[in-house]
Amino acid sequence: MTVTLHVCTTCKAAEAVADGEPLLGARLHAALLAGEVPEGLRIVGVACLSACNSGAAVALSAPGRWSYVYGRLTEADAPDILLGAAAYLDAPDGIVPWRARPVIFRKQSLARIPPLEPSNV
């Protein structure tokens, strides 16, 4: 099953950005794509996750699983985000045991959204 990691590429997290410089969210997106992406993870840039006060933000989702939105992230967090996504890939319902989550996923969760349909797992 494919898991999607949406990355808000327009997040700036109140960061002053000069014209032509990449925004924080775009830098995070690039860092994630440059990292060791687990098999089965699809990384997709999106224009906005509506978490502007908590940017940069990402969302993890898959059919039949709980979805999560995480914020207050930077490109330095890319390795931990990818580790968290790998743990999510291994969780049939999307609920990763607390201690198996990277610290940023424990402390920087903005929302947990139930699956649209029950899992067949």
Score class of each variant (00 low, 15 high):
Thr74Met: 01
Leu49Cys: 03
Ala59Glu: 15
Ser109Trp: 09
Pro97Gln: 05
Leu83His: 13
Val58Cys: 07
Leu49Ala: 00
Gln108Gly: 03
Leu89Ala: 01
Ala56Lys: 06
Arg106Ala: 03
Ser61Met: 12
Phe105Cys: 05
Gly55Ala: 10
Ala91Lys: 01
Pro97Lys: 04
Pro97Asp: 08
Ala59Phe: 11
Ile104Gly: 02
Ala91Trp: 09
Gly64Arg: 07
Ala76Pro: 00
Tyr88Arg: 04
Lys107Met: 08
Ser50Pro: 00
Leu83Tyr: 14
Gly64Trp: 11
Ile95Met: 12
Ser61Asn: 10
Ser50Tyr: 13
Ala78Gln: 03
Ala62Gln: 04
Leu82Arg: 13
Ala57Cys: 10
Cys48Pro: 02
Asp90Val: 08
Val58Ile: 14
Ser54Gln: 15
Tyr88Met: 05
Asn53Glu: 14
Arg99Phe: 10
Tyr88Gly: 02
Ala87Thr: 13
Pro97Asn: 09
Arg106Tyr: 07
Ala59Gly: 14
Asp80Gln: 12
Pro92Tyr: 10
Val96Gln: 02
Ala86Val: 09
Ala56Pro: 10
Tyr68Thr: 15
Ala100Gly: 08
Cys48Met: 04
Asn53Thr: 15
Ser61Lys: 14
Ala76Glu: 05
Ser109Arg: 13
Leu73His: 01
Ser67Tyr: 12
Ser50Glu: 06
Glu75Val: 00
Pro97Cys: 05
Gly55Arg: 00
Cys52Pro: 00
Ala47Ile: 09
Ile104Arg: 10
Ser109Tyr: 08
Asn53Cys: 09
Gly55Leu: 01
Leu83Ser: 15
Asp93Ser: 14
Ala47Asp: 12
Val58Phe: 06
Pro102Val: 08
Asp93Arg: 15
Pro63Phe: 07
Cys52Lys: 04
Arg65Ile: 12
Arg106Leu: 04
Tyr70Cys: 09
Arg65Lys: 14
Gly84Asn: 10
Arg99Asp: 14
Gly71Lys: 05
Leu89Pro: 03
Cys52His: 01
Ala51Ile: 10
Leu49Ile: 12
Ala62Thr: 05
Cys48Arg: 08
Val103Met: 09
Cys48Asn: 08
Ala86Trp: 11
Ala78His: 06
Arg106Lys: 04
Arg65Trp: 10
Val69Lys: 07
Ile81Gln: 01
Arg72Phe: 09
Val69Ala: 10
Leu60Phe: 07
Tyr68Asp: 10
Asp80Thr: 05
Ala100Phe: 05
Arg72Val: 06
Ala56Asn: 05
Glu75Met: 00
Leu49His: 03
Asp77Asn: 08
Tyr68Gln: 15
Ala91Met: 01
Ile95Ser: 13
Pro92Ala: 07
Ala86Gln: 14
Thr74Trp: 01
Gly71Asp: 02
Leu73Glu: 05
Ala87Tyr: 13
Gly84His: 06
Leu82Asn: 06
Arg101Met: 14
Ala59Thr: 09
Arg99Pro: 04
Gly94Gln: 01
Trp98Ala: 12
Gly94Trp: 06
Gly84Ala: 07
Cys48Gln: 05
